[in-house]
Structures are given as C-alpha cells and as structure tokens.
C-alpha cells in the first residue's frame, strides 16, 4: 500500500455540504510545506526544499551560479587580456601570478578560460533553447493529432537519428560555414529528435486524460488545451533532458572547435584551448590542455547534476 492511502482524509472534518463554510472544519489543515498564499512565495520555499533534500543539486546549483557569474562578469574579472600575447612569459606552469599557467604565445590561460565561459554557455543555451522549443512544438503536435503529422515528423526524426550525431553536426557546420551561429544551429538540429520524441510520448499518453476532456468542456480549443494543459505536464521529464543536453551541447561545441570547425582562433573557447594545448602535452606542458578540459568537464558535470533538481522544481506533485 502506498502512503497516499494512509493520509488521513481531511474531508472527514467537513462532511456537511452546507453552503456556509463548514463550521466544524476547525483550523485550516495545511500539510508541511504546502503552498501558502502567493505562488511565488511557495516556489521559493519549494526551491529551498529541493536544494535541501538533494545535496548534489545544491552543489550543482552553486556551480551553475558561479558559471553564470563568470559568463556575465568574466571579461571584467579576468586578470589579463585574454588575447594579448607576451613572448617573454610563454609556457609558464601554473603560479600565483598565472593560476592556470600561460600558453605558447604567453597568454594567461586562466583569463582565457574565464572569458570563454560566456561564449560556451551562450552556444549551449541557445542551441538547447532552439531544439527544446522546436522539438516540443513538433513532438506535441505529432503526439496530439497523430495521423499524417505524426508519420511525417516521425520519419524526418528517424532520418536525423540515423546519422552519427557528431558527424551530422560536422557536416552541417562545414556546409553552412564556419561561424558561432552555425554551431548553434547544428547543435540544435542534432538535439531536436530527443525533444520531439519525448514531447510526443508525454503528450500522447495524456491526450485522452480526463483533465484534457474537462479542458475542452471549459471552452479550450484543441490547440489551447495542448499548450496550456497537456504540454506543461510533459515538462518534468523534459527538464532532465534539457540539463543533460546542455552538458552535451557544450561538449559538442567544444568538439567542433577542437577539430577546427566553428569558433576560430584566437577567440578563447574551451574546445580550441584543449585542441591547441594537446600539442604540448608530450613536451610536459600539461596545464594547457588539462585545466581548460577540467573546467569543461566541471560544466558538463554541473548540468548533468542539475537535471533532477530542475525536474523536482517544475513538478507541483513534489511540493507536498
């Protein structure tokens, strides 16, 4: 038996269906942490609960905030100009003056990593946002209407999935041209099938649910019921997908840069830095590739960890 059945029925306190508020209802019954008053307040309270109950989410959230700050204030905070080379200080190991050491042109690696945060996060967020929005629309329509919409979108998605995704992304960037914008588009297209499929499945199981019929009785048109009633219920699993995808999108962007597609040197970007630093590992200058790589890994880790917390946050059922 589940706990839900054990919960003492608060209804018992107000049996009388009097038009006046039941006089024997007693003091308001409020379960622990129940939303009180304004929704914004309850969301904040719920956020605190989610963070408290899952320490990994807390760690990931802190790291995420640090990354956001680095993205916004990176160029201001950077101790050195990330583009300025200084031949005299080339290939210095990490020290107090250069935390992550310097590269072959004498540029400060820490400053470059810090400044690169903005570019990498922008690529990842933009790509995921595009694929989330497009994928959700396509998938929801396919899941709700079925029929030929479902068949056509389904086959297109299968076609995309048939390619090795990274190779597809490479092909798109190579065809469209080497630019940050095109990396975003390529990453978005490659990710689209995941959102479309998930949205389709989540919408499909709820298509005939009672609350959807009730929504239609309430005067919602099909499209409005889909957008305001069904789709929000698909959000919790989508949130997990988003966070996993953010990490993957960063890796994808870095990978494209690593093989020379996308961001051009000397623009600081994690993937390029790892690629350029890789040449020096053999000669013992490990910090050039390893430290940007570690930051990259940390970013991916952060997004992966954030998923569960995000899901709990958007799911009102968790707010008990």
């Amino acid at each position: 038996m589940k706990h839900t059945e054990i919960a003492i029925d608060p209804f018992a306190a107000s049996v009388a269906p009097e038009p006046a508020p039941a006089p024997d209802a007693g003091p308001p019954l409020r379960p622990h942490g129940a939303p009180a008053g304004r929704p914004s307040l309850s969301l904040a309270r719920h956020l605190v609960y989610v963070l408290k109950s899952n320490p990994m989410t807390l760690v990931a959230s802190v790291l995420f905030v640090v990354m956001l700050l680095a993205a916004v204030f990176g160029p201001v905070l950077a101790p050195y100009n990330p583009l300025k080379s200084e031949a005299a200080a080339a290939l210095q190991p990490p020290s107090f003056s250069h935390w992550f050491g310097t590269d072959d042109l004498g540029r400060d690696v820490f400053s470059r990593v810090l400044v690169a945060t903005r570019l990498d996060l922008t690529i990842a967020l933009a790509a995921v946002a595009i694929s989330f929005v497009l994928g959700s629309i396509v998938g929801s329509l396919a899941g709700y209407y079925g029929g030929w919409i479902d068949k056509i979108t389904g086959r297109i998605i299968d076609t995309i999935m048939a390619f090795p995704l990274f190779v597809l992304a490479m092909g798109i960037v190579a065809a469209l041209g080497n630019s940050v914008e095109n990396i975003v588009y390529a990453t978005a297209i490659v990710n689209l099938p995941f959102y479309a499929r998930m949205a389709r499945a989540e919408v499909n199981v709820r298509r005939d649910a009672g609350f959807v019929q009730a929504a239609k009785l309430s005067g919602n048109t099909d499209l409005r019921a889909l957008a305001t009633q069904i789709f929000p219920n698909a959000l919790p699993p989508m949130m997990v997908q988003i966070s996993l995808n953010l990490g993957w999108a960063i890796l994808n962007a870095a990978g494209l840069s690593f093989i020379g597609l996308g961001v051009n040197p000397p623009t600081p970007e994690w993937g390029i830095m790892v690629a350029e630093g890789a040449r020096f590992i053999v000669s013992g200058e490990w910090w050039l590739a390893l430290l940007p790589g570690a930051v990259l890994m940390l970013a991916v880790f952060t997004f992966n960890m954030l998923g569960d917390g995000l899901r709990d946050l958007v799911d009102p059922r968790q707010r008990t």
Binding site: S14, A16, P31, A34, P35, P316, T320
Partner: peptide, 13 residues
Amino acid sequence: GFPAHLLDRFPHQ
C-alpha cells in the same frame, strides 16, 4: 462546500 483555504492546493494535496 469546498473549504476556501484549500483553493491554493494542488490535486494531489
């Protein structure tokens, strides 16, 4: 006969 103070609650509550 639905108690007004429960109007903020979600169905699972």
